[in-house]
Write a protein that binds this DNA or RNA. Structure first.
Length: 227
DNA sequence: CACCAGGCAAGTA
DNA sequence: TACTTGCATGGT
């Protein structure tokens, strides 16, 4: 007969981590944006960019009444680029916004709801085909706009997990996401809240120069501590 | 002043 | 497949 392990269930530190993060910061009610198109634009604009700068660009788009799929699609690229300048990479990001509106316009009759009605895996593939939408941006749209249970892996996620030695540098995007899928129940609301809390933690404590003293996860560090 | 921020695509080997 | 580089602004 096979020997039974002393612990009845496999350890799931990411569950414990979630409880602590929620206790420390409370529900984050993400994404920080009102409409679907605002969330999508924000997801593209925040690529490798501080959110404070994205807010300036979003505010300008609102002032220009350009935060709609139609307006984003018809505004000349040069004009759009100037409006979103504070978010950085403005020429690239203007093209990326346009690439998205072109997808919806050409393949979905200009209707976001038709795009969002696609089945999850198909929707992800469609989004990834858009130039300027990679795994994180696609998953952000899937989770925060289409409300599908997918986990968003961003730079903060990697840094937090790396500090706790739950992943390695070389782990792929999907390997990191798979860690969460394996340990958490498959619920949109949970994935939503978890990612938002990781960003809160990341901004507060998990900087390049760490402030681990007040980190609610610090006792979850394995023997040897953070790198 | 240097470094950093909620990526991604295109080019090279 | 695995690296490298360009893209750009504003905050610390």
């Amino acid at each position: 007969m096979k020997e039974k392990k002393a612990r009845p269930t496999k350890r799931k530190p990411l569950n414990e981590a979630f409880d602590r993060l929620l206790e420390r910061w409370g529900p984050q009610h993400w994404w920080p944006g009102e409409t679907d198109i605002e969330i999508i634009a924000g997801a593209i604009l925040t690529q490798n960019t501080a959110w404070a700068n994205v807010e300036k660009a979003i505010r300008r788009l609102k002032e220009e009444k350009a935060l709609s799929l139609e307006a984003l699609h018809r505004t000349p690229l040069e004009t759009l680029a100037q409006w979103i300048r504070p978010a950085g990479y403005h020429n690239v990001k203007a093209r990326r916004l346009r690439a998205f509106t072109t997808l919806v316009t050409q393949a979905y009759e200009g209707r976001l709801d038709k795009l969002l009605a696609e089945e999850t895996d198909e929707l992800r593939r469609v989004l990834l085909r858009v130039n300027g939408i990679g795994p994180e941006t696609a998953d952000s749209i899937l989770l925060y706009v289409a409300r599908r249970p997918v986990f968003v892996v961003d730079a903060y996620t990697r840094r937090v997990l790396l500090r706790h030695r739950w992943i390695r540098e070389s782990d792929s995007y999907d390997e990191v996401a798979a860690l969460f899928r394996a340990q958490l129940s498959n619920e949109t609301a949970l994935f939503n809240e978890y990612h938002a809390l990781i960003v809160a933690l990341g901004k507060q404590h998990c900087r390049p120069t760490p402030q681990c003293g007040e980190c609610p996860l610090r006792e979850l560090l394995p023997p040897g501590g953070a790198a």
